[in-house]
């Protein structure tokens, strides 16, 4: 029988954890992303033509929102897990009748909430200041949630395999950061030379950004269905790996 109450309690605990340091976990990434928008958007607005009839600042807002969602969803699970390991309080959860799946759902659920909260705050500024419109809220919500879930899962994976903060920082700086910056947040991949266009298509983050952008402009670099399929596939792979590790207790019950 599923322990819904236990899973819910853990989900709420994870939300309360990041909310207790909301300046660091929500406001700071919002301000950092708005600075990107200010610098890149304002300076390059008239110099770069990406999609026809669209200002560069309008073009990059969805990309920046998605970048913030991805980074914050990853940060939530990974930092929570590594802190719990370091302080030892993960033991409390491990001693409770919460299954690996319930633990995963609770952690990833909270990561989605944080990712989407940060993304939403940036989006509100984008809508007010840059006259941003949207074509399909459904695609926007779908990509925001699925991408946050995938990154929450990836953060969980990083948290599981990391033994110290240093390992996590390496994963964040050498894997997550490059993949995010090279995912088409600041440009359309059509602006890249041929070979880089092809390489970009091996980056799963590219599909999340592209699909999310489709929700706003109704146009994208690749088919939105391809983006959805890739996002779902990666979410499934990451979830499966996490559940296997949690079930076996790798680096958690050792």
């Amino acid at each position: 029988m599923i322990n819904y109450a236990g899973c819910w309690a853990l989900f709420i605990k994870e939300i309360r954890r990041f909310y207790s340091v909301v300046v660091q976990t929500v406001f700071a990434p919002v301000v950092a992303t708005l600075l990107y928008l200010l610098v890149f958007g304002q300076v390059l607005d008239t110099q770069i033509d990406v999609y026809s009839g669209l200002d560069y600042s309008q073009f990059i807002i969805p990309g920046l929102v998605m970048m913030a969602i991805l980074q914050n969803a990853f940060a939530n699970t990974s930092s929570s897990l590594i802190q719990s390991k370091m302080h030892g309080n993960l033991t409390f959860v491990l001693l409770s009748p919460i299954s690996p799946l319930e633990l995963y759902v609770a952690f990833v659920g909270a990561a989605i909430v944080r990712g989407v909260a940060v993304g939403l705050a940036i989006l509100v500024v984008g809508i007010i200041w840059f006259d941003l419109s949207w074509q399909s809220p459904l695609w926007i919500m779908l990509f925001a949630i699925l991408s946050a879930a995938m990154m929450g899962g990836l953060g969980m994976l990083a948290g599981i395999i990391s033994d110290k903060y240093d390992h996590l920082a390496a994963f964040q700086n050498f894997v997550i950061m490059p993949l995010t910056f090279l995912s088409g947040v600041f440009y359309s991949i059509h602006a890249l030379p041929g070979v880089w266009q092809e390489i970009s298509q091996f980056n799963p983050f590219f599909y999340m950004v592209d699909g999310f952008r489709y929700g706003f402009f109704g146009q994208s670099d690749v088919s939105v269905y391809l983006s959805l399929s890739v996002t779902l596939l990666f979410l499934l792979i990451v979830s499966a790996i996490n559940l296997i590790l949690l079930h076996k207790g790798v680096k958690i019950r050792e």
Partner: peptide, 28 residues
Amino acid sequence: LGLVPQELISDPFFSIRELLQLQSGYFG
């Protein structure tokens, strides 16, 4: 089973009462 582990544990985000409430929640 209830275990009192050997290593001291802390949680910088919650008070003692909140920790007890959360732990109760895990058990429904």
